[in-house]
């Protein structure tokens, strides 16, 4: 001690520098931006979202108007991805189809995530009989192969894009419920939840303010990963003729319409397939990056 003072209570406290509060968000961003693959994926996803929003304005041709002079023409400068059996520009159709795929992917996962999260939180927090009932229902849903479950739901509801969303949402519910339940179980035992109980916080507040924020990171990661799978499932359903109906430029439906010309005009299936592939890959890579950035155990 330079001036010979005794260590008082406040000495340990004054050292912290002012400014620059490290919020969880800024910490996340610091870790996330270090991951190159995830940044590329995030940029691509951002691009997809922009294309989905302004698609009809930037597409060079109409997505639905047939052009019988240019049937099945291969990729050229005029038609970057060639044209299909009705002479429609495939590149334009892909651009306009982006909004459909993203819409289906996002809404179905969102619905599944909301319902699954609520069920998982209740199931994990209250336990007991409620937990058993919710988890057994999830087991039943898990026992179906995903696509079969979706086909079954569509068989009941009838084909169409809205019903595809519901079908894909339903089979996302049990996975979200399980993920959220397991993190709820571990957070429920944490001391800070005990501390919240000890100050007299009601269950609603504990679940919402203390447990839910803790499960959020695994929800976000799984949400992102799930979008890719959902887009894929929705495309498969459309490919089977159960989802978007022609002439809608949905990517799966485009694949389906091109399969008759696989040998003579492979570009009709190749480009929509590439669009699905890149989109799903981007969401999965983004999910990986988010997981690494949100995992509190991974320091730098």
């Amino acid at each position: 001690m330079e001036n010979g003072t005794v260590i008082t209570q406040s000495d340990e406290l004054i050292q912290s520098k002012p400014e620059k509060v490290k919020t969880p968000l800024s910490e996340f961003w610091r870790k996330f931006k270090k991951q190159k693959m995830a940044m590329v994926a995030a940029t691509f996803v951002l691009l997809l979202i922009i294309v989905a929003l302004i698609g009809p304005f930037i597409a060079p041709y109409s997505a639905t108007e047939p052009d019988y002079d240019n049937i099945l023409s291969p990729p050229s400068l005029e038609h970057l991805a060639g044209t299909d059996a009705f002479g429609r520009d495939i590149f334009s159709r892909i651009i306009e189809g982006t909004s459909i795929s993203l819409y289906v992917g996002l809404t179905s996962v969102f619905i599944g995530a909301v319902i699954g999260t609520v069920l998982g939180l209740l199931s994990g927090y209250y336990g007991g009989r409620l937990d058993s009932i919710i988890m057994r229902i999830c087991d039943v849903l898990f026992a179906f192969p995903g696509i079969l479950l979706a086909i079954g739901i569509i068989a009941i509801l009838g084909p169409g894009l809205e019903n595809v969303i519901i079908a894909v949402a339903v089979f996302g519910i049990p996975t979200f419920a399980r993920i959220v339940r397991s993190s709820t179980l571990s957070i429920k035992e944490s001391v800070y939840v005990e501390s919240a109980i000890s100050i007299g916080a009601p269950a609603r507040r504990i679940i919402w303010k203390h447990i839910f924020p803790g499960t959020l990171s695994s929800i976000i990661v799984y949400f992102t990963m799930r979008i890719g799978t959902s887009i894929l499932t929705a495309a498969s359903l459309s490919f089977l003729g159960l989802g978007a109906q022609p002439p809608s430029p949905e990517w799966g439906a485009m694949l389906s319409s091109g399969r008759d010309f696989l040998n003579s005009a492979p570009h009709v299936t190749f480009f929509p397939g590439l669009a699905i592939f890149l989109t799903v890959l981007a969401f999965n890579l983004l999910g990986d990056g988010l997981r690494d950035a949100l995992d509190p155990k991974m320091k730098d």
């Binding site: 969880p24 944490s190 001391v191 800070y192 005990e194 501390s195 919240a196 000890s198 100050i199 007299g200 916080a201 009601p202 303010k209 203390h210 924020p213 803790g214 509190p296």
Partner: peptide, 30 residues
């Protein structure tokens, strides 16, 4: 729950007993 304001607890582990996702203001005003 209502009676709980009469007795409060200080926990052993100061690292685990404060919710890491809350600011000090939120923690103290809770």
């Amino acid at each position: 729950r209502e009676t709980r304001k009469e007795f409060q607890m200080i926990f052993q582990d100061p690292y685990a007993s404060l919710n890491p996702r809350m600011t000090i203001r939120e923690l103290i005003s809770e």
